[in-house]
Design a protein around this nucleic acid. Sequence first.
DNA 1: CGACTCCTTGAGCAGCTTCAATCGATGTGG
DNA 2: CCACATCGATTGAAGCTGCTCAAGGAGTCG
Lengths: 222, 222
Amino acid sequence: MYAHTTHGFLASRDQHTEIRPCRIEPTLRLEQGKILYHQGDAGETIYKVKEGVLRLSRVTVKGRQQVVAFAFPGDTFGFPVKGRRHTDCDALVPSRLVVQSARMPGDGSVRADELASLARAALHEIGDMQEHLMILGRKSSREKVAAFLSTVSRRLGEADGEAIRVDLPMGRTDIADYLGLRTETVSRAFTDLRQSGIISLGTAQSVSILDPEALDDIAEGD
Amino acid sequence: MYAHTTHGFLASRDQHTEIRPCRIEPTLRLEQGKILYHQGDAGETIYKVKEGVLRLSRVTVKGRQQVVAFAFPGDTFGFPVKGRRHTDCDALVPSRLVVQSARMPGDGSVRADELASLARAALHEIGDMQEHLMILGRKSSREKVAAFLSTVSRRLGEADGEAIRVDLPMGRTDIADYLGLRTETVSRAFTDLRQSGIISLGTAQSVSILDPEALDDIAEGD
DNA sequence: CGACTCCTTGAGCAGCTTCAATCGATGTGG
DNA sequence: CCACATCGATTGAAGCTGCTCAAGGAGTCG
């Protein structure tokens, strides 16, 4: 079970779900496992993660899942294309989100700074997805897992002397579906990295990265 | 040599970003093989393809290439992240581009409709990249090549009775680098599809899709 | 404690890659 | 005009990586 880390996340006074009309940025609470939206849903909003981790995924005809992205605190996600969601989205851990408009001019009054914020976030998202493409297309299983751990540790990790501790909010299946692998292969890669002395595992979820530099070397080493 | 089709695209991706005749939209010509920009270059513009095909790619430390995307007529590409290009870009065939600003508010005066056009194109790009992720993560070589041919035929193909004829502007190596495969594997997939009677090959570049429906079935069949 | 879920490990197999040779189209020089 | 060189595409054979199927271990919760 995921023990939520309390460090570093933005604190908010408002713990309520209700949308207050006087506020520009209504927040939303999402319990673990709850679905925010489905692929194909109509939607004109985007979300910014205040706390928690979300999973964006698509399911294929044959029932296999591709995790398109994980959304960490600070990330903006949910960009609709032609007013439709292109992925499913659910919460891996209890999460809090800020809801923002993603309406285009012509649909009504849109503020320029809102639009710019949307554009900037979308551009950032494109950069992230290109990284993901590099991982999927050009890496071995070991390299993929190393790259994944490196990224996650930068987003969720806590310094622990030389090491970095991370409490993974997602299971092996999610990691596999993100990297285009099977859970068995991910598990073997974890074991491999552990036996190389690069990481250590408390539970399966709690990872210590003992040698971040070596991890990055493996991740880069296409 | 690639003979550019000047008419008869089966699909055009032109959004409602009509160029207004009163404004000066600078166009750019790019010869075959010429580089438009490199990864890491500073840039505040985006480009819309009027004619031709561009290749967006990134090179890894070990010299292998990942083709992130192909830009076909009607596509907008080149979104800078934090003012930097995230890929290399070069022309696979002689191309003509429309140059557009991608500056954000704060950098100067930016028109709302320009910004909205940028945002819309970026959102569209995200959708395309998600498709690419699905292809890279969850498909066999045969399925990847089928999905690729299906996409390209919709963008560049000319109807030919039941069949669709396509003149591929890219070589086997580019296709392989796009799909996360080796050229030999791509070649074998072409041969496979040919022997199944789904496609036929004039030269290696000129493909006829004899059974588009069967091709899509293979492409979907995760 | 026992049922459940998820992770790990093992063995065999399939698909993709690797290395190598051949073919075909194109271009060049004699 | 033909011989030859060149580059990309194709084909073959062998090896390796990741997948499949299967069993066992570890943590969780009733």
